[in-house]
Simulated scan of single mutants.
Amino acid sequence: MGFTLTRELPNHGAPSLLPEVAFSPDGATFAASVQEHNEVRLYDTASGECLRTWSSPEAGFGEPHGLVLTERHLLVSNRHYFSAPSDIRVYRLAATDDRPVDCLTTPFPGLVEAHSLALSRGRLLVTYCEGDGRTGGVVCYGYDDEAGKLGKPLSVVEDCFRTLGDPKGVSFLDGGRRAIVSFNSLKTNPVLLELYLRYLRRWYRNRGRTAASILRHAAGVLRGRPVNQRRPLPILKNGLAFFTIDEAGRLSPAPERVIFRDTFCRLENVHCQGNTCAVADTINGQVQLYDLATDPGLSCPGQVIQEGVTLPHGVKVSPDGRTLVVSNYGLRAWRQEILWHGWSNPRSDTISIYRRA
């Protein structure tokens, strides 16, 4: 497939997770979410220049994550991390301010954390992942890009993920007739190790917060705790699930095909463009690229990218198939666990741009 690293864009300012990237329809620009800064940045694909930044408080971000760029609008999913219901916001690209023109709050109480977005012909797919013993799902919403308006849910799939794992990335393929969803399951650790890792995660989450902010967060958790408390089966595999989707936005209730990965690798985002399928293999520090034409079962990657990659999360192939953009968390991993309490040294929370030879 021949992608080679051509540019690395550093994350200026305080370190931050860079969850996702999204190309414009013409591929001339791409957006990246900057979670801890509560920002979304728009870059020129050719030069890497930052063209625009949407930021809070005007944008109303709450840990922005998933992204979609259309000809007229930017769509952003906000995690809020239990402090408020997850939402999706729409921003008009031609506007001179950062205020959203529409907002949709998750209507399903058991789906808490909006992760990734995919759009095709007025159908917006959103994955919701959970953690702490809960399972997520995939929801298809209607979307009118002319008006920048989010519509009602057209379908929702939850039950199958109770035995598969946490849904993460999502992408359309086959001209919008099918969707691919990446999922992962939490690795089982010894009790003392799990307590230690939980303490580190809690410390990282709360560092820099005021006492009042921590109390508000705790109150939000108590008020809005999801009702879906069923613990997934302890499957230590990751994989990709394929669903059919019709023109009305109805997803098949169960995947037509599931591909498991034997090695625990915490699959994150996935993106299909033409015959290229890119998968972020976070823990193993690589991006796997498959050719759907010659390898529809995704049995062996045609290229594995490791240069310029440190805990990759967001992956997108440009509409013309010649550019690959990867967002890197820049964190370390230990015993198949992400160490959320610090960044690698030297810092590598970067965006890597690759060109096809």
Rank of each mutant, 00 (worst) to 15 (best):
residue 105 T to L: 06
residue 236 L to R: 12
residue 336 Q to T: 08
residue 55 S to T: 10
residue 312 P to H: 04
residue 40 V to H: 07
residue 229 Q to K: 11
residue 303 Q to L: 03
residue 299 S to V: 01
residue 185 S to P: 04
residue 221 V to Q: 13
residue 248 A to E: 14
residue 280 A to C: 09
residue 312 P to Y: 03
residue 89 R to P: 10
residue 198 R to W: 13
residue 130 E to R: 11
residue 139 V to C: 03
residue 276 T to W: 09
residue 357 A to D: 15
residue 178 R to T: 10
residue 22 A to T: 04
residue 111 L to C: 08
residue 242 F to C: 08
residue 108 F to H: 15
residue 113 E to M: 12
residue 10 P to D: 04
residue 349 D to N: 10
residue 58 E to M: 01
residue 247 E to F: 04
residue 289 L to N: 10
residue 346 P to F: 04
residue 308 G to M: 12
residue 97 D to M: 00
residue 169 G to R: 03
residue 95 A to F: 11
residue 249 G to V: 05
residue 64 P to I: 03
residue 303 Q to R: 06
residue 202 R to C: 05
residue 266 R to F: 12
residue 59 A to K: 05
residue 305 I to T: 01
residue 3 F to G: 01
residue 54 W to P: 06
residue 295 D to H: 05
residue 303 Q to I: 04
residue 189 N to K: 15
residue 62 G to V: 02
residue 282 T to H: 09
residue 67 L to I: 02
residue 309 V to L: 01
residue 255 P to H: 03
residue 143 Y to V: 06
residue 262 D to T: 10
residue 90 V to T: 09
residue 186 L to S: 15
residue 139 V to K: 02
residue 67 L to R: 03
residue 82 F to L: 13
residue 61 F to C: 01
residue 76 V to W: 08
residue 308 G to T: 14
residue 20 E to S: 09
residue 314 G to Q: 06
residue 301 P to C: 00
residue 136 G to T: 00
residue 196 Y to G: 06
residue 129 C to H: 14
residue 196 Y to F: 13
residue 347 R to I: 07
residue 298 L to R: 10
residue 207 R to L: 03
residue 39 E to D: 05
residue 278 A to D: 06
residue 235 I to H: 14
residue 339 L to G: 04
residue 276 T to L: 10
residue 326 V to G: 07
residue 240 L to E: 07
residue 120 S to L: 03
residue 52 R to H: 15
residue 182 S to Q: 12
residue 25 P to T: 06
residue 182 S to L: 10
residue 91 Y to V: 01
residue 173 L to N: 04
residue 277 C to P: 13
residue 79 R to Y: 13
residue 152 K to N: 03
residue 132 D to K: 13
residue 248 A to Q: 14
residue 315 V to Y: 07
residue 105 T to W: 12
residue 41 R to A: 15
residue 87 D to K: 08
residue 236 L to Y: 07
residue 210 T to M: 07
residue 147 A to Q: 15
residue 1 M to I: 00
residue 76 V to G: 05
residue 180 I to A: 15
residue 174 D to P: 05
residue 37 H to A: 11
residue 80 H to S: 07
residue 253 P to G: 01
residue 66 G to P: 02
residue 92 R to K: 14
residue 159 D to F: 11
residue 277 C to D: 01
residue 38 N to A: 02
residue 51 L to D: 08
residue 101 V to P: 14
residue 148 G to E: 12
residue 205 R to I: 04
residue 79 R to L: 13
residue 79 R to K: 13
residue 111 L to W: 11
residue 276 T to C: 12
residue 244 T to L: 03
residue 119 L to K: 02
residue 164 L to C: 02
residue 349 D to Y: 07
residue 63 E to M: 10
residue 105 T to D: 00
residue 175 G to L: 09
residue 7 R to E: 04
residue 126 V to I: 13
residue 185 S to G: 10
